[in-house]
């Protein structure tokens, strides 16, 4: 069987357990105990997504188009922000760990979380939108070149995720 171009994904938050997907799937890809559709069995026909009364099933492509290119001037400015966010997060983390004040500890815990999310968003718009991008693959290759557990994890990811850019 050839690799499907698309496969079905269920949003559990929307699923109202009408179970029509079980009736329409010719391959039994939807009958898992944890409600996650079995990607190995799904052939991407879309029958479940079409039949689902709660709109909880949608189709995602197996391969993604290359991400938008970024200009160097934008990357440079985003880099400045990224460095600041990294320092801010670390300072907040240290304050949260060291303070004896309950309120400050909660505020700094919030700051660590908030700054990380903002920083991640900066990274997403700095040429790292897709894990399949050449940038992400180059990053993984650099980590894989190192030693220890992280290098091993990066190698595993390189095996799992194909690059979608020349």
């Amino acid at each position: 069987m050839s690799t499907p171009r698309k496969y079905a994904v269920r949003n559990l938050r929307l699923c109202t357990k009408d179970c029509i997907c079980l009736f329409v799937c010719p391959y039994g890809a939807t009958d898992t105990e944890n409600s996650v559709i079995d990607v190995d069995k799904c052939v991407g026909c879309g029958a479940c997504a079409e039949a689902c009364p709660s709109g909880a099933i949608y189709m995602v492509p197996a391969t993604y188009p290359p991400q938008q290119k970024k200009q160097d001037s934008v990357l440079e400015a985003m880099g400045e922000l990224s460095r600041a966010k990294a320092d801010e997060e670390q300072i907040a983390r240290q304050i949260a760990a060291e303070t004896g004040e309950e309120g400050l500890a909660r505020l700094m815990k919030a700051a660590v979380k908030s700054l990380r999310l903002v920083h991640e968003d900066v990274m997403r718009e700095s040429g790292y939108m897709l894990p399949q991008s050449a940038n992400a693959q180059a990053l993984l290759a650099r980590i894989a070149d190192g030693e220890g557990a992280s290098a091993q994890t990066a190698k595993e990811l390189l095996d799992l995720i194909p690059c979608n850019e020349p």
């Binding site: 994904v9 996650v36 990607v39 995602v60 993604y64 990224s82 460095r83 966010k85 990294a86 320092d87 997060e89 670390q90 990380r116 920083h119 991640e120 968003d121 900066v122 990274m123 997403r124 790292y128 939108m129 897709l130 894990p131 992400a136 990053l139 980590i143 992280s150 994890t153 990066a154 595993e156 990811l157 799992l160 995720i161």
Partner: peptide
């Protein structure tokens, strides 16, 4: 290291959105 951490966190979220739970967990580990 802090920048790479945020980068990997972002890619973990990207994998999660693409319904790639194993890849997402590995990026989160990084």
């Amino acid at each position: 290291a802090g920048q790479v951490a945020a980068l990997c966190g972002n890619l973990a979220r990207g994998c999660e959105k693409q319904n790639l739970p194993r890849e997402s967990a590995l990026f989160a580990q990084l």
